[in-house]
Simulated scan of single mutants.
Amino acid sequence: MALVLVTGAATGLGLATAQALAADGHDVVAHARNPSRLAGAGLLDQVRGAIYGNLAEHQEVVALAGQADEYGRFDAVIHNAGVLTGPDVLAVNTLAPYILTARLRTPHRLVYLSSSMRRSGSANLQGLTTGRVSYEDSKLYVTALAAAIASRCPETASHAVDPGWVPTRMGGPGATDDLRAGHETQVWLATGQDIEPRTGGYWYHRHTQRPHPAAQDATFQAELIAGLEARTGISLG
């Protein structure tokens, strides 16, 4: 069985993902902003452990990596947590996955949650300096990060996932995609066998899709990593 970290596991897709992994017998470490959020989710009796930290706060993300490493090297890390609007979009959707990727012991598999909205993202990286980016930009960035890790760390399987427009708190009640299909791909990429391509895929409901062209551009990936290193003061190594 696999040891899997799921960020943003208190609600929505993160909760569904953590529950599905636990039901399959995997050892899940669930992340939430604070203990009350996980306690209210009814998840604690299903998982191996829990870690807490606000992904919008740089030092809390760094500390979170230390908490996570106490469980040993993960077989998979699912970067699920995200916010749709507000001042924390860049921090939560892009910077936190980057910091955790840089600080955690490298897992066997990495799964980054993207969005179909990344198609409207801008390849202008000025937002890394100003901190003002749209949700669409942040999801383009994290999609490119997943692709960059796939290129730089061939021993680790790194994928990005579009979960679809699902009826979570973020997606809203009018969302038209199936909630179960929204998390099944993450579970499969984290623990499944015979995944092709083994790394570097952009997935929607277990089928590969074409990401934003910038996400596959080696120059853009390099500029993004350099910008993330400058913004966070943390090298990817």
Rank of each mutant, 00 (worst) to 15 (best):
A91W: 08
H205V: 15
V161N: 07
D177F: 08
P87Q: 11
P173L: 06
T106P: 14
R109G: 05
P87S: 14
A148H: 10
A147I: 01
L189Y: 10
C153M: 14
Q193L: 11
V83H: 04
N124R: 08
Q193F: 10
R180C: 05
S115E: 07
V111I: 06
G172V: 02
E184F: 01
R118S: 10
T94I: 01
A190F: 13
G200C: 08
G131Y: 09
A96C: 09
A175V: 01
L128I: 09
V166E: 04
V166C: 14
S158C: 13
D194H: 14
V187C: 10
L90S: 02
A148E: 12
D178S: 13
R198A: 15
E136R: 14
P154A: 14
S115V: 05
P163D: 07
R152S: 12
Q126N: 15
G121E: 00
P197Q: 11
G174N: 11
P154M: 13
S134F: 03
R152H: 11
M170G: 06
Y204H: 15
W203G: 09
G192A: 14
I195W: 02
S114G: 06
G86N: 05
W188H: 14
L95Y: 07
L145C: 00
V83D: 06
P154N: 12
P87E: 15
L84T: 00
T85D: 11
Y112R: 02
A102E: 05
A123W: 00
E184L: 12
V83Q: 04
G171T: 08
P167G: 03
P87T: 14
H79P: 06
I149W: 11
N80F: 02
Y112N: 03
A181P: 02
L113G: 00
P87V: 10
